[in-house]
């Protein structure tokens, strides 16, 4: 459903991605692993349309979306759970979810989506009128995922969803990734916690210094010397 080909992305004059190619199939969890600064978030932000690639193509369901700005990408069926959560801190939990469903397609399914998110994260229902900024780290991550799901994506981009969370909450987050996949949403997962990411993924890519240095099934990557050396630290 997503094909990224030969992507070059720059920050000003500094190149962050060199010819990155990644594909995600329908209903699949694909992870991008790699160390800090390898270009993982850059790739996600380029797909979302937050960053504009200088070269290469991004195709979503046979439609070229390379030049599509961020605010159109979400109508095309892509949503993001950004690194560091980036909620709207001085707005309530409910308003954050509400804004997740801002685009017209998602708006039409608002009640249905809200029910789904509340089933996945019952705590968000209890805290609906609390300000997002006053939630605990784990609750904030759930809200960030919930907000992403409110957009009714066919492809969910998740950038470091386990960062800074207690182990119990990390387990919960990864359970949700599997649930979401089972409901037919494709997930592109960027994680430093490579072990857990590979456990829930069917395929994976290893990114190092802005280049895809390896790709294959999650099992292949988990066993490979490169991944074990560079990310798993075994």
């Amino acid at each position: 459903m997503l094909q990224v080909t030969d992507l070059d992305v720059f920050y000003g004059d500094a190149q962050a991605l060199w010819g990155a190619s990644v594909t995600v199939g329908s209903g699949e969890v694909v992870s991008i692993v790699g160390s800090n600064g390898a270009g993982k978030s850059t790739l996600v932000n380029a797909i979302m349309g937050i960053l504009r690639p200088r070269r290469g193509r991004i195709v979503l369901d046979d439609q070229d979306v390379t030049e599509t700005p961020g605010h159109r990408m979400c109508r095309a069926g892509v949503a993001i759970v950004p690194e560091g959560r980036r909620l709207f801190p001085s707005m309530s939990v409910e308003d954050n979810l509400d804004l997740g469903a801002f685009n017209r397609v998602a708006r039409a399914h608002y009640e249905e989506s809200l029910q789904w998110v509340h089933t996945l994260f019952p705590r968000l229902a209890d805290r609906r009128s609390q300000l997002a900024g006053s939630l605990s780290g784990g609750e904030q991550q759930m809200l960030a995922i919930g907000r992403g799901l409110m957009a009714r994506p066919r492809l969910l981009l998740m950038d470091e969803p386990s960062l800074g969370l207690a182990p119990v909450v990390v387990d919960e987050v990864f359970d949700v990734i599997e649930t979401v996949r089972d409901e037919g949403v494709s997930v592109l997962l960027v994680e430093q916690n490579a072990q857990m990411a590979l456990d829930v993924s069917s395929r994976a890519y290893l990114l190092a210094e802005g280049r895809v240095v390896m790709d294959g099934t999650a099992e292949e990557l988990a066993k490979s010397r490169e991944v074990r050396d560079s990310v798993l630290g075994l």
Binding site: G70, H71, R72, F88, P89, S90, D98, F102
Partner: peptide, 24 residues
């Protein structure tokens, strides 16, 4: 209003607001 909340979201994080379809 919905537009007002969209504006608030935009004021708090323009990139993410835009990623959710808010046409700044």
């Amino acid at each position: 209003t919905y537009a007002g909340r969209a504006l608030q979201a935009f004021g708090q994080d323009r990139e993410i607001a835009s990623a959710f379809g808010i046409d700044h």
